[in-house]
Write a protein that binds this DNA or RNA. Structure first.
Lengths: 192, 192
DNA sequence: CTTGTATGCGAGTGCTTGCATGCATATAAA
DNA sequence: TTTATATGCATGCAAGCACTCGCATACAAG
């Protein structure tokens, strides 16, 4: 990937994050990338092609693979904290807004699988984790799907709300949130 | 509001929910509403004006006022279940997608306060609820902000994930989710 | 019957869009 | 030095955009 193409991709993805795909014009992209508009079409087939190449780059996707969960201690509290930190390290506000910006009908068929892979990876990890924890006798039997959905929804929800309504709605810091919510998940409200 | 204007508003809001504001053209709106395109501009100042009138209609906003929490029993489990049900009754997938469709820079300054009012109302209710519960001696002392954020994030997260990735990611039904997550909030994972 | 109002219709406004082309220039490899 | 490649720049194009105009038609109230 030559430098000019990269600048074009970076400009495109930034604009989509800020304004959405449809509202992002090739003129905008060229201006932000500091190149002439026609250079876009020398390097890429069309506007959509820029985006589709962008979403395949590590730089523009949360780098989510299963090996991010390496430090499992098989201890509920530190493991859930590690899980939430792993999520929030990768799913930054920029990434959240980019994901929303990519939700355009013209793109969605091709980008949706990529966007969906992120939550799926986290949900799959959590599900496996709890199954193993039960096998090890460290927790009782659960409806794992509901348990996982509760914890993941909460992690996802906080991340999304922070990115969308920063400080207007969310007054709790990330560290506080992780500490307290894990405590609640582990001990419940009455048992604290 | 005459019938024609209402049809135009309904068509506009539906299209924004499905494609977003920028991708929705006045030609689309006219076709879906079954009126001539120029009728839009006889009834409304411009495209933006249609949306701004739409978002003020009860029909097109979650009808969230504080009196939706009337059935408080001051009992953790039924109250949290009531809270989550109240949220999910109102924040339907359609409403979630409409909220995202309204996130266009051309609109956001004017629509954001309306969109934000919904989570704020729920967060405010929960905060007050837990404060009263502590005063009544029914729960111990908490960092209420973190507690509220955990529960609301989870409710919001499940609602959003269901609307966005239906059944591909979310296998848990609403009823199951509410039942189990409230159980976890109340008892914790270890105490079940 | 007259008049006002709501709407349809076709055409067209000025502007912007994604995209293309021809040509000049810069740079770097041969 | 020659040659190939990358890029800038001006210009252009067909299509699509939000929005407007003049005029015809329907219908209901007076």
């Amino acid at each position: 990937m030559d430098e000019t193409s990269q600048k074009i991709i970076d400009a495109t993805m930034s604009l989509i994050r800020d304004k959405g795909y449809v509202a992002t014009t090739t003129k905008d992209i060229a201006r932000l990338a500091g190149v002439n508009e026609c250079t876009l079409f020398r390097k890429f087939k069309n506007k959509k092609d820029i985006v589709l190449q962008g979403v395949t780059q590590e730089k523009w996707r949360a780098n989510v693979t299963s090996d991010i969960f390496e430090n499992v201690q098989w201890e509920l509290k530190p493991d859930l904290e590690m899980f939430m930190n792993a999520y929030m390290d990768r799913i930054t506000p920029d990434f959240v807004n980019l994901s929303i910006g990519l939700r355009a009908p013209q793109l969605y068929d091709e980008t949706a699988p990529l966007i969906m892979k992120v939550p799926q990876t986290f949900v799959a990890f959590l599900t496996e984790y709890f199954q193993r924890m039960e096998e090890m006798g460290k927790i009782g039997h659960f409806d794992f799907e509901s348990l996982v959905m509760t914890i993941f929804s909460s992690t996802f929800g906080y991340t999304f709300l922070s990115a969308s309504f920063n400080r207007n709605l969310v007054k709790t810091s990330r560290e506080e949130f992780i500490k307290y919510s894990v405590k609640i998940f582990v001990d419940g409200i009455l048992g604290m």
